[in-house]
Design a binder for these strands. Sequence first.
RNA 1: GGAGGAGUGCCCGAGUGGCUAAAGGGGGCGGACUGUAAAUCCGCUGGCUAUGCCUACGUUGGUUCGAAUCCAACCUCCUCCA
Length: 418
Amino acid sequence: MTYHPKSDFMRVMIERGFLADCTDYQSLDEALVEGVVPAYIGFDATAKSLHVGSLIQIMMLRWLQKTGHKPITLMGGGTTKVGDPSFRADERPLLTPDQIDDNIAGIKKVFANYIDYDAENDSKAVMINNAEWLDDLNYLDFLRDIGRHFSVNRMLSFESVKSRLDREQSLSFLEFNYMILQAYDFLELNRRYGCLLQMGGSDQWGNIVNGIDLTRRVLDNQIFGLTSPLLTTSDGKKMGKSLSGAIWLNSDMLSSYEFWQFWRNTTDADVGRFLKLYTELPLEECERLGALEGSDINDAKIVLANEVTKLAHGEEAAKAAEATAREVFEKGGTGDDLPTISLTAQDIGDGISIVQLIVKAGLVKSGKEAKRLISENGARVNDAPLEDAGMMVSTDDLELPMKLSAGKKRHALVRLDG
RNA sequence: GGAGGAGUGCCCGAGUGGCUAAAGGGGGCGGACUGUAAAUCCGCUGGCUAUGCCUACGUUGGUUCGAAUCCAACCUCCUCCA
């Protein structure tokens, strides 16, 4: 960007790599200088927790608040009933209202760690559910008041739905309405809360622009949109997957240790970028750490893991995760923070096969995979290669916690409970 | 409503009566190399109480000793027409 912003928020967004595009850099910048700007990001409730793919959005709201503005976290209680088709190859399964409520409850937990909803100033954040205005819409009124502002011709031209239209997959009318509902959200947030800005990933650009147009037409208000880059790791993978699935932000969905490990395993080339996006370390520090060469950059990865985990799960959790990681990887020992399963004597009975234990410990999905792992010499028990796939484990073997390993990186503890 | 095309394993995609748990690729997992990195190379990749059994090629039935493969009906999607 050649634009030199006057506002702290825009400056941070640009310097730290959050900015992919903005509908009007200069006007938005001026609004940010003039006063408190309420800005929102919407989160659909498709799972019980958000994952690291949404973390960049959360960090944007956090910076927004830190630079003196007002974050609005919009929970998509209404829009989730429709499902966002943007850049998706197929239709999502519809969630029931109960599932959606459950998911919202889970997602809410994580925001409190990043955003202050109790601030006693103009930057106090608010959390709103768009079900508030979407659930009770009257179809005909909505079509007449809002629908008339949308051109189907134009809607069909959006990149976000193009792949669906071009290819053999259908786009249901239900999903097609998503962009109208999201546009309407922006309008309502402007009307009700004076919201001036919507942020989101660059895949949301079309939806955001629609909201801006709609608000201008209906209320004659100028509002703004700002998008973050769609994050992939430098080796071209989507952000947020790792060894065993999605990287959830909620600690009840993914342990702090595993969360920490995800960041510790960042690809070299991403370290500097991630430090800027996902931590609040000074820029120079991010750059210095990201520029470390060879094995020195491992120290930077530890800093990254500590900082991100601290924000998400708290300082204690970060410390415990680091301690366990050091114990496990540097000394080849064990640590309390490793994923642990507890078995009762009853579970074990006369003995349980090692194959079953490996499955129960969550290191593999099936007994067959466990056997494969063993035959490939990837399984270890207390750090000794496991050769006998038929090995039985008795309660006596679990006097001390047993450490099971799958490959070099994945470990779990098995304890006897009670 | 009419005509034509399509529906395969986590994904893409070959197969068009037995040799098919189904080529190839991607992804994933394990190994080597390293730095708990990347790239590269090698191997594995449906499940189970396992010399056998179960599940699987849109769904349901049928033909056959035998079907992903043939037939019928249905469902869904795509393209064109109304």
